[in-house]
Amino acid sequence: MARARASLIIATATVFIMLIVMYAVFNYHNYLLLSLGIIGGIMMLFFIRFEIKTVKTREIVILALLAAIGAVARVPFAGLPSVQPTSFVIITVGLVFGAESGFLVGALAALVSNIFLGQGPWTPWQMFAWGTMGMSAGLLRQFAGMGNLWVLNTFGFIWGFIFGWMMNLWIVFSNMQNFTWEFLVGIYVSSFYHDLAHAISNIVFISLFSMSWTRILNRFKKKHGLLEDPALNQTINRT
């Protein structure tokens, strides 16, 4: 536990030191590099936490597999523009396996699919956006409403837009010298239809497949005892 806390503190401190160093050294304020550093620092916190935890070998393999499925899921839909079920896969994983797994699968799916589709400065942003998508699904699963299809659809719809807005930020940050409010609004307006398509495809996938996917994953989770809530385990052990 002490080791865990130490590395978490180190990662947090790195982000702040980076802020100061960037401000002091770069008189041409390099916002793209700075933003990438901060995103990397934030994600590092999650990764370190996963490194320290006791995890079964099974769980590692399953998470890697789910990330690969999330990445591959884009393949059959290559013919349909802006329809990709990766977000759906990540949300479902977050709902079933919890916030941390959701984050890891989201971040890994982005990284892995970009190895095949092309890596770039947008990769960390994508990792972060999909990671937080999975994480938020995992955090909200405790509310009973998340079982309701309407609530889940709203969640997917909203995330379709938030994902696009997060991804717009990397364009804004790489163009910071050029920044005007018109430019910002222009980028967000021009991405509207793309985001809308993402949101709608989320709704379609969630309403068609969310039930069966949750059932499949839940059954598998129960059968092999994977990635269970420690809180839940404690109550079972006590009784």
Binding site: E51, L65, L104
Partner: peptide
């Protein structure tokens, strides 16, 4: 994490 990434890359 490195192992997981490698495994995911191999799974694709």
């Amino acid at each position: 994490i490195a192992l997981m990434i490698m495994m995911a890359i191999r799974f694709v």
